[in-house]
């Protein structure tokens, strides 16, 4: 029997899963929308992912914003933040990469690497302007499928300038431009460009972006954004066909590195996994507690500041 490893990346918008073998080769992968229900999304994901016959699952890693919850649910041996996971996933395919641009659903980050080691990183702090969810909400407003966005943007020769420092103001500026009669493709191109400007000004401020540059995250599927990145930075931007899976791949590799003797099984169908929120009234901190039940058995309580409910 050969061993394989599962990496799950549960983001705000989409959930990604990969199964790799011991040579980091992707055996199976899956991408679906989280739809605000990480537990349900992971259950669906695991139904779709197939472990090939002669393999056994030796490790599970989770990353993304729901990493802790899903890590507990799957009993993962590695729970890692998305920055490290992305860097490790990307360097396993492109060992020479020096800059990783990542734009996801809710967050965007830049990771600088030298010889495969992270030397600096930054993440958006204040606002979600210039992320995937901004693009998808504007797509809905314009009545365009977000998957088509990039292609439409490429048609335009004259992208509209948008005041895009803030999501809300960008939206009102966009409405204004629509109402005075700008063409749709110019507006869409303007949106793609504003994402690039916003990202470079807010996330990368003061950082030296050296090539080779890799662009990933959900927004990297948008050819319009890629085009404006190349235009602004003046270099070629690499986009891997599996760019959306890099986080999951990275955490699968980490699971491989921390492998134990344990063999995992993926039958979550009969496991009931419930979370209940409540407020503790022990002191004036009023911590929001989250109780996690597995098959009606309380396995952990999160969110207390005083450590009263900490797992022993």
């Amino acid at each position: 029997m050969k061993s394989c490893y599962l990496g799950v990346d549960i983001g705000s918008i989409s959930t990604k899963g990969v199964i790799i073998d011991s040579q980091n080769k992707i055996l199976d992968s899956c991408y679906l929308y989280t739809e605000g229900d990480p537990i349900g999304a992971v259950k669906r994901l695991l139904n779709k992912l197939k472990i090939p016959k002669q393999y056994i699952l030796k490790g599970i890693g989770t990353t993304g914003s729901a990493r802790k919850l899903i890590g507990l649910m799957l009993d993962a041996n590695v729970i890692k933040n998305e920055i490290t996971a992305h860097a490790i996933g990307t360097t396993s395919i492109y060992p020479n990469v020096r800059t990783i641009l990542e734009i996801g659903g809710q967050d965007s980050k830049v990771i600088l690497l030298r010889e495969g080691i992270i030397v600096d990183y930054a993440m958006n702090t204040l606002c979600a302007a210039g992320t995937g969810s901004f693009l998808s909400s504007q797509a809905k407003r314009l009545g365009v499928d977000v998957e088509e966005f990039g292609k439409i943007a490429l048609k335009s020769n004259n992208p509209v300038k948008l005041a895009a420092r803030c999501t809300v103001f960008a939206e009102s500026d966009l409405v204004h431009k629509v109402q005075i009669g700008y063409e749709k493709e110019d507006i869409i191109a303007g949106l793609c460009r504003s994402v690039v400007f916003n990202y470079l000004n807010n996330v990368c401020k003061g950082k030296k972006l050296e090539s080779p540059i890799i662009f990933q995250g959900g927004v990297s599927k948008n050819v319009g954004v890629i085009k404006y990145f190349e235009e602004t930075l003046g270099t070629k931007i690499l986009v891997d066909p599996n760019s959306h899976l890099m986080g999951a791949l990275g955490v699968a590799i980490l699971a491989k590195k921390n492998e134990t003797d344990k063999v995992y099984k993926l039958n979550l169908k009969d496991i009931k996994f419930i979370t209940k929120g409540s407020e503790c009234s022990g002191c004036s901190n009023n911590c929001e507690l989250l109780k996690i039940y597995k098959n009606d058995e309380l396995i952990d309580i999160w969110g207390s500041r005083c450590g009263k409910f900490a797992k022993q």
Binding site: S65, K80, N81, I83, T84, I118, V119, Y121, M123, T125
Partner: peptide, 17 residues
């Protein structure tokens, strides 16, 4: 959560370096 994620990543980075 944001603070903790960044701090964790910072630690990972220092460890790798």
């Amino acid at each position: 959560t944001g603070v903790k994620t960044r701090l964790e990543a910072f630690y990972d980075m220092l460890e790798m370096r």
